[in-house]
């Protein structure tokens, strides 16, 4: 395995009695995109602030490209895009990028290329006041790409964006990752990051509940498929006696089964075709997987 750009080991951080982060261990390698999922208040932003060096963990260590968070080397290696950012309204897009170039000690000659990459070349001389939400977020992304950082830290970067803007946004992120940049981005939901990240980590109440590819998470969750059968009037009792399951109402029956038992169950239902009105199959979706990890184990904690 290659050397991680971001290495978080057993990090805990408390605000008084509230444990915002509890034993979090996470690593992101060069070129890897990791999505950090969690509810509001799960600890995502706190973790980001710890990585940025704004908050010091009570326990554990974080290193960014081998450096302590907050050190110059770590700040140069990493850049950040917060969930809500509003640049000064009376500056132009180019002036905003020139400001961050100056702070990062990067060359101003790369600004044109960055504006091009996020599709703002035509709006470069316009005041930020006139930008749409999507344009502002793209300007934020361009800001984060200044100086070719080795780690991109994106806090819910696409919330509130329309699907087209979101797609464009992830295209730029994928390009950065292809050049070897490690990406850690947070999000509320799995659908949003499906297909856009290599790995997913789920944070709930300050603890890391799961981490892996989507397929791995789905397998680990081993969620059951639900088959909903609607019987013809008066035949629901007989179906339940034969197949089991839960009665929903007079004529409906929900049967849960493991994904690999689904086909057998459907074949069995075929024998009752004369009393069947309708069959619906509910395979577990991304949301169910997410809920499984963020709620289920939270209840035990």
């Amino acid at each position: 395995m290659t050397q991680s750009i971001l290495d978080i080991r057993n990090v805990s951080l408390s605000f008084g009695p509230l444990k915002a982060l509890d034993g979090v261990t996470l690593a992101v390698s060069p070129g890897e995109r990791l999505a950090l999922l969690g509810h509001n208040g799960a600890g995502k932003s706190t973790l980001f602030k710890a990585i940025l060096g704004f908050l010091a963990p009570g326990e554990g260590t974080i290193t960014v490209a081998g450096h302590r968070p907050g050190s110059d080397a770590a700040r140069i290696a990493m850049s950040y895009l917060p969930e809500v950012v509003s640049f000064p309204q009376s500056l132009t897009g180019r002036e905003v990028l020139a400001y961050f170039s100056g702070l990062r000690g990067a060359s101003r000659s790369e600004i044109n290329g960055l504006l091009d990459r996020v599709g703002l070349a035509d709006a470069a001389e316009r005041r930020v006041r006139t930008y749409s939400k999507g344009m502002r977020q793209r300007l934020g992304l361009a800001q984060a790409l200044i100086g070719a950082p080795r780690l991109l830290l994106l806090d819910e970067p696409t919330s509130g964006l329309d699907p087209v803007s979101r797609h464009d946004f992830y295209t730029v992120i994928a390009e950065a990752a292809a050049r070897g940049c490690a990406v850690l981005l947070s999000s509320h939901g799995l659908e949003e990051v499906q297909g856009q990240t290599d790995r997913v980590a789920i944070l709930s109440r300050g603890r890391l509940r799961a981490s892996g590819t989507l397929a791995e998470l789905a397998a680990a969750a081993a969620l059951r498929t639900t088959i909903r059968v609607t019987a013809k009037q008066g035949h629901a009792d007989r179906l339940q006696a034969d197949l089991g399951g839960r009665r929903v109402n007079g004529c409906r029956l929900d049967i849960d089964c493991a994904p690999d038992a689904k086909l057998g169950l459907l074949l069995q239902l075929g024998h009752h075709r004369d009393v069947l009105h309708e069959i619906d199959v509910f395979a577990p979706g991304l949301n169910d997987i997410y809920r499984h990890f963020s709620d289920h184990e939270g209840d035990q904690a």
Partner: peptide, 13 residues
Amino acid sequence: ERGALALTLASPV
């Protein structure tokens, strides 16, 4: 309040 200072502070300033 606008979140702009976090960006400035994330740079090596």
